[in-house]
Design a protein around this nucleic acid. Structure first.
Lengths: 189, 189
DNA sequence: GTCTATACAGGGATAGAC
DNA sequence: GTCTATCCCTGTATAGAC
């Protein structure tokens, strides 16, 4: 009750989550060790296990956080005050770090994540919400709703696959080629 | 000189590679242990390190093999004796184990693979050859070559992304929705 | 809350006999 | 070529002091 909004303890907790988010993006969950999280965050061993009973608990917190942040950024683009066609184009041409890969999508290849329902859930939610938002925008461009839903899945997929191709070839432009190829199709050539 | 084409030793080597291929598909390279490969293949510890000096050497052999096999299967579909339009459709609607993910594409999220140029190379080759073959087929449908190349990247990306979405949602149909959404666009609605 | 010390299984590999 | 025994390091914690 005498505390400010964020106690000193919360600072360590936040630093742990942030460091875990970064490392998960770089190397995945399974391949990230508690020691790496400690080194990155500057937090001590004792503190980690004070704030999180296990690596799994930290992983869940970090994945949830990443998922929320990524969804918020995507929805910000899709809900801008502009014509639907422009919002769709803005989503597809958004600046992305192609060689780093998608912070969320890449987790679907992580064995620790896929083996754990609580880690999978934020990922499922992210893509469900993203595809739904895309379908809404696409429907606003005048496409029937059932067509819009399939097309929204295609749009989300081309971005995820663009990341895969970019990383596979060490070529950041592969993502742009994939999305621009789809945009041409969407805009009727 | 007195040997048959495949010596008894090759049998163990082959079983190790096959087991590694399966395990890499299931769990990735980094998360697969030599012990798992031994258990799966039925080969003994001594034999593993007789045939492959390190886990890395086994991984390179297994990834190369997987890449060759996957490319051969894809090209078989794309080079059938049928109209280009049908071959493209056959590629997109090919039976795929969506929830298992792509044996090649998934490796782009593996930290061990991405940190090693020799492991990355077969993956790069696979997608380069796949996109080139797709571009040829698409060009045969009457599309200008530069457009065909971008479009080929889009096709490969939608398949890869479809896998990601399917695994993310635990929904095998997500892959079909992604590819059928693309097919509608390709066939001019 | 944070620290240092300790524990112990498993990963990745070597040694040397058969 | 294959086997068993052994090795050292790191991942993932637990214990208990400060």
């Amino acid at each position: 009750m005498t505390q400010t909004g964020i106690s000193r303890g919360q600072a360590a907790r936040e630093r742990l989550i942030t460091a875990a988010q970064e490392l998960f993006w770089e190397n995945g969950v399974a391949a990230t060790t508690p020691r790496q999280v400690l080194a990155r965050s500057g937090v001590g061993h004792g503190s980690l296990y004070h704030h999180f009973p296990t690596k799994r608990a930290l992983a869940i917190a970090a994945i949830q956080r990443t998922s929320e942040q990524a969804l918020a950024r995507a929805l910000a683009v899709l809900n801008q005050d502009r014509p639907a066609r422009e919002r769709l184009r803005a989503f597809l041409t958004r600046q992305r770090d192609a060689l780093a890969g998608c912070r969320i999508g890449r987790l679907t290849a992580d064995p620790d994540v896929m083996a754990d329902a609580e880690m999978r859930e934020p990922i499922r939610r992210y893509f469900t919400a993203l595809v739904e938002a895309l379908a809404t925008v696409i429907a606003e461009t005048g496409v029937p709703l059932t067509t819009a839903t399939a097309r929204a899945t295609t749009v989300a997929a081309v971005v995820q696959g663009g990341y895969v191709l970019a990383r596979a070839g060490g070529d950041a432009h592969a993502l742009e080629r994939a999305t621009s190829g789809l945009m041409d199709l969407l805009e009727g050539d």
